[in-house]
Structures are given as structure tokens and as C-alpha cells.
Write a protein that binds this DNA or RNA. Sequence first.
DNA 1: GTGGTCTAGACCACT
DNA 2: GTGGTCTAGACCACT
Lengths: 128, 128, 128, 128
Amino acid sequence: MIIEFDEKQPIYLQIMDLIKRDIVSGKLKGGDKLPSVREMAEKLKVNPNTVQRAYQELEREKVTFTQRGMGTFITKDEGMISALKKKMAKDVLDAFINGMRELGFSGDEILHIVKNYVEKGDPDWISY
Amino acid sequence: MIIEFDEKQPIYLQIMDLIKRDIVSGKLKGGDKLPSVREMAEKLKVNPNTVQRAYQELEREKVTFTQRGMGTFITKDEGMISALKKKMAKDVLDAFINGMRELGFSGDEILHIVKNYVEKGDPDWISY
Amino acid sequence: MIIEFDEKQPIYLQIMDLIKRDIVSGKLKGGDKLPSVREMAEKLKVNPNTVQRAYQELEREKVTFTQRGMGTFITKDEGMISALKKKMAKDVLDAFINGMRELGFSGDEILHIVKNYVEKGDPDWISY
Amino acid sequence: MIIEFDEKQPIYLQIMDLIKRDIVSGKLKGGDKLPSVREMAEKLKVNPNTVQRAYQELEREKVTFTQRGMGTFITKDEGMISALKKKMAKDVLDAFINGMRELGFSGDEILHIVKNYVEKGDPDWISY
DNA sequence: GTGGTCTAGACCACT
DNA sequence: GTGGTCTAGACCACT
């Protein structure tokens, strides 16, 4: 796993995002143990402090919980996980809608395009 | 107009994108004159050479054309403009579909969400 | 100002507490600027990172806000400040009531003692 | 019984305090026998010498007395016990009053708060 | 000058 | 071994 970090966002935020994505996509499930701070730091080639910060913020957001001396674990609160998924999906959705509107597409046009893309694999741009 | 340039992409490419967006969204129309290289450089606070390069590439892509002594103009070829729009919309659309699939949504679910969002202003996440 | 830090609690928490006490007691008012991270670090003889962390947590708790390049300021939200005061007073009060109950005093006895202490400067322990 | 010892105070003083609290709260009564030095040392997981010292100091303070071959007993002097109780209560009381004054509360306000807390279970912070 | 992020490396409590 | 805190010192964006 080779990760490239964006320069425009703090690394600890990107690590948080990485983990959230794995939770939401189901790669990580409630109760799963995250790699230790040191392991993760080595894997990602960043300083342990940076991973530590990411883990701490995740815990504050109730996405994970820690057991002293045992490690950091994904929350077992399914409501929290589904809320996370909604939040992340909402961000993706908003970026899309705004992007399309900026390009001059109306709501109906956006729906038409998505519909055709999803159902036929072809956006059907005809008439735009 | 304050533009923030990304560090991960050459500025001339970002300027090209800026202009393409204005064309696609209709702010700039076929035949419209672009600001002179110097004006644009001053407005964006970049080196005139950078703007010059952006203009050159846009002309090579047939998005603009130049008239000696007159300036640079947006192409009047509506086919070119609509192709541009499709190309940019396709990028936004792919980013969206991929983003949603990474979050674990199926095509049908994506369509359902967009439909509800566009028609009711609410994605209706129920059951995800 | 010489501060002695307790070893049983992280220094950054103690710094947060210090600032909160100054807010609650009125030494610091809404809108007041805190010393810069570096100044405070020098004054308290701790590492700037430690002060930085305290300031960041305070901001997350909405006790302060920061203006990039300008500094860190006490919130102007009087509701927040009065909530802070109540929260801290509640902690002091609970510690007192629990401490007295552990010593075997009843609620009425506690009230009697406080009343005499406040009004006459003498707890009047008679009969306990 | 798991006891956490403070690092900032000699353990023997903390053991003394533990016993004094049990006397004051009534868990230990006049004439009750304390566990042997060895038993207590084992229970608290400390060196017997440390317990020995605590017992010696308690005896010097007339809180306990020893009978050769029998063990260590709580004093039967009720005056001593009630003086002990007053002394400990005074410490708790002073910490409370000082804490509240530091937060900016007046004597009347403190009394009002304690009264409401004791009588209604609610401090009634209104207007502070 | 201001806060924000990061690396490097240390020491701590707890399991 | 695990997370938590701290120091020392660097570089960044923004005012």
C-alpha cells in the first residue's frame, strides 16, 4: 500500500479520511483493531506523532475508541458508521451537483445524465 | 477576482481550465474577446509568459483563435464548445460515480439518491 | 507569574484550566487576545507545542477563536462564558458535597456549616 | 480494594489519610482493630515498612494505640475522633469556599447555591 | 509576528 | 507492545 499525500491538506486529516473510507466501504468493521500508531506510521512513512494525531481526532469524533495498552478500535456503534457514510456521500454528492451546475446543467439534465450513465453506461449528452 | 492556484499543477493549465469553465458555463461566448495577455497576467498576478502559454495551448486545442493585432477570441465553433462541455462534465460525472462506488453504493442507489436530491432537495439516505 | 504544573494531569489541560479560570473570574474578557503561543510558552517555561495544543483544544471547545496571522482570542459569546462558569462551579461544588458526605455529613449539616461559615466566618461544628 | 497512590505525597501519609477517612466516616469505630502491618502491606501492595511508619505516626497523633502482642486499635477517645472529623471537614470546606471565590462567587451566592443543591438537588445558577 | 503542521526522539502508564 | 504527552526545532501560510 503506497499512499501519496496531498500537499494541500494536513497529513493527519488525510489519514483520518483513509480510515473513514475503509470503514464506510466495509473494509474495516465495527470492533476491528487499527494498526498500532507505530505500525501505521511505518506503513505510511510518516512520523508516529502524525498518526497519533489522526487516531486521536478519530476518537474524538467517536469513530474509534481506544483501550489503554490494547490499541485503537473501530466503533461498534452502527449508527455512527452509517452517519459517517451519509456524511461522506453527501460531500461527494454536493461536489458533483455543484460541479455540474457550474457547467450549466439543470437538475433535470443532471438526473437524465446519471440515469443513462447508470442504466446504459452512457451519459447520453445529446442535446446539451 | 481572486484565484488560488494549486501547486500540484502548472499554472498555465489552471488558467486554461478557468477559461474553459467560463466558456462552458456561458460566461464567455463564441467570438468573445479574451483580455490581453498583459491584462490577464496583471489580474491573476502571474507572469505574462504563463498567460501567453495558456493562450497558445488553448489555440492549439482550437478553443480560441487569434487575429493579429486584434487579440484572442473564443471559437465560434459551437460543436467545439459543446464537446468541451461534455468532456468536462464527463470528468465530474466519473469522479462522482467512482466516489459513490468507493463508499459502497450501487448504481441503483446512486440514481435513487440523485433523483431525490434533484427533485426534493433531499438525498433520502434511508436504508443505506 | 510562576506556575507549578501538577504531574498527575497533562500540562496542556492545566494550561486550558488556567485560561478558563481567568475567563470565569473576569481577568480575561470576551474578545481579549491571549498571549501568542510563543510568548505563553516562554512565560510558562513549556514547549510551544504544548501551548499550541492547549490553544487548539480551547478553540475546539469554542472558548476561544483564532484569526490567522492575528492571534487567539477569547470568545465573545457570553452564553459560552457563563456556561463555562457554571460547569467549573459545578465541579467544585460536587467535589465539596461528595467530600463532606464521605466524612459522614448530611445535607442539612453541610448547609448549616456553609451558612455559619459564610455568615459568621465560623463553620460552627457543634454537635457533629 | 484498589488504591492509587499519589506520587506527590509520601505513601505513608496517604495510608494515614485512608485510615483517618474510614474512622471519620464511621467505617472504623473506636476500639476497632486495624489489620496487621503485614496484612495491610499485602492488601495495599506496599512495603511493610511503609505501613509500619503510617501506624507509628497515627499512634503519635493519638489516633490509634497499640497493645503489645494484640495489634493496633482505633482510639476510643471520641473527642479525638470528632476533632479529626472537624479538621478534615475544614480542609474540604476551605477548598470549596476558595474555589468558588476564585470563580467570582460571593458568600451569599455560595450559600444560595449550596442551599438549592442540598434542598432541591439543583444548584440554581440563575443570574450568575 | 501569528497560528498550524510535521519530524525526531524521549519517557510515561497500562496490558 | 499499546496509546499519551512532551521537548526541540523546522517550515508553512497568512497578516
